[in-house]
Computed example of a mutant assay.
Amino acid sequence: MATQQTQGIQTLLEAEKEAAKIVQQARQYRVQKLKDARSEAQKEIDGYKKVKEEEFKAFEASHAGTTSTTQAALDKETEAKLKEIDDVYKQKKDDVVNSLIGRAILVKPELHRNLKKVTA
């Protein structure tokens, strides 16, 4: 009977070792699957990122010409307005200076309203 018990215990120990090996293999399998899933997800992310960057570059290239054209038109319009303002300044400058000088030398002496006339 002791041999039978020892043999039963030995069988249980072997079964426990086998179960531990199976559990360890399952853990390793799970870890490997997680690594594989992460690397696959990273590949998908990189591919999506590459596609979006190419779309952005194409969009940027198609609109870059529009921006430079618009900037050139605005620069031209600004120059025209500045020239117009300069021309008006040159035309009106003498009139404004003469008007200011005329006001400066126009003197009408009169008593201040707060000054009372002293009657003798």
Rank of each mutant, 00 (worst) to 15 (best):
residue 41 A to H: 11
residue 28 Q to Y: 02
residue 10 Q to M: 01
residue 14 E to Q: 09
residue 94 D to C: 00
residue 53 E to L: 13
residue 115 L to C: 11
residue 18 E to N: 10
residue 46 D to F: 02
residue 45 I to D: 08
residue 105 I to L: 13
residue 8 G to Q: 04
residue 48 Y to M: 04
residue 80 A to Q: 12
residue 84 E to R: 11
residue 44 E to A: 05
residue 15 A to T: 10
residue 72 A to S: 06
residue 90 K to L: 11
residue 108 K to L: 13
residue 70 T to I: 07
residue 41 A to S: 12
residue 96 V to G: 02
residue 12 L to S: 14
residue 64 A to Q: 14
residue 118 V to F: 02
residue 105 I to A: 08
residue 116 K to P: 04
residue 118 V to Q: 02
residue 49 K to A: 12
residue 17 K to V: 13
residue 14 E to C: 00
residue 82 L to S: 13
residue 61 A to S: 10
residue 100 L to C: 11
residue 16 E to A: 15
residue 29 Y to D: 09
residue 2 A to G: 05
residue 29 Y to C: 01
residue 1 M to P: 09
residue 48 Y to D: 05
residue 5 Q to S: 03
residue 99 S to R: 15
residue 53 E to A: 10
residue 9 I to K: 05
residue 58 A to R: 12
residue 72 A to K: 05
residue 28 Q to P: 00
residue 56 F to C: 07
residue 107 V to S: 12
residue 115 L to M: 12
residue 12 L to G: 13
residue 36 D to L: 06
residue 73 A to G: 03
residue 27 R to L: 11
residue 86 D to P: 03
residue 110 E to L: 08
residue 74 L to E: 04
residue 96 V to R: 06
residue 4 Q to T: 05
residue 118 V to Y: 01
residue 4 Q to R: 04
residue 119 T to N: 02
residue 111 L to E: 07
residue 22 I to P: 01
residue 91 Q to E: 13
residue 103 R to E: 14
residue 59 F to P: 00
residue 91 Q to A: 08
residue 26 A to Q: 05
residue 116 K to H: 07
residue 75 D to P: 01
residue 102 G to T: 09
residue 43 K to M: 02
residue 1 M to R: 11
residue 118 V to A: 04
residue 20 A to N: 10
residue 33 K to H: 01
residue 24 Q to N: 06
residue 117 K to Q: 10
residue 88 V to K: 14
residue 108 K to Y: 10
residue 36 D to A: 10
residue 100 L to N: 12
residue 10 Q to S: 04
residue 33 K to G: 00
residue 98 N to S: 08
residue 92 K to P: 00
residue 6 T to Y: 01
residue 103 R to D: 13
residue 49 K to H: 11
residue 104 A to Y: 13
residue 57 K to T: 12
residue 74 L to I: 05
residue 12 L to M: 12
residue 30 R to P: 00
residue 80 A to S: 12
residue 52 K to A: 15
residue 116 K to G: 07
residue 100 L to Y: 14
residue 64 A to D: 10
residue 34 L to H: 10
residue 81 K to P: 03
residue 52 K to N: 10
residue 76 K to G: 04
residue 90 K to H: 14
residue 15 A to F: 06
residue 26 A to S: 04
residue 109 P to G: 11
residue 61 A to R: 11
residue 119 T to V: 05
residue 39 S to L: 14
residue 43 K to A: 08
residue 9 I to G: 00
residue 86 D to R: 13
residue 89 Y to S: 06
residue 39 S to T: 11
residue 52 K to S: 12
residue 77 E to M: 03
residue 95 D to F: 06
residue 61 A to Q: 11
residue 113 R to E: 15
residue 106 L to H: 13
residue 5 Q to G: 01
residue 33 K to E: 04
residue 13 L to Q: 13
residue 79 E to I: 05
residue 55 E to G: 01
residue 47 G to R: 13
residue 66 T to V: 14
residue 114 N to E: 09
residue 61 A to W: 03
residue 76 K to S: 12
residue 113 R to A: 15
residue 16 E to G: 07
residue 32 Q to H: 03
residue 19 A to G: 03
residue 86 D to G: 08
residue 108 K to W: 06
residue 109 P to F: 07
residue 67 T to G: 09
residue 77 E to N: 03
residue 100 L to R: 12
residue 2 A to T: 02
residue 70 T to V: 06
residue 96 V to S: 04
residue 28 Q to H: 07
residue 53 E to N: 08
residue 65 G to C: 04
residue 78 T to G: 14
residue 16 E to S: 12
residue 26 A to L: 02
residue 97 V to T: 10
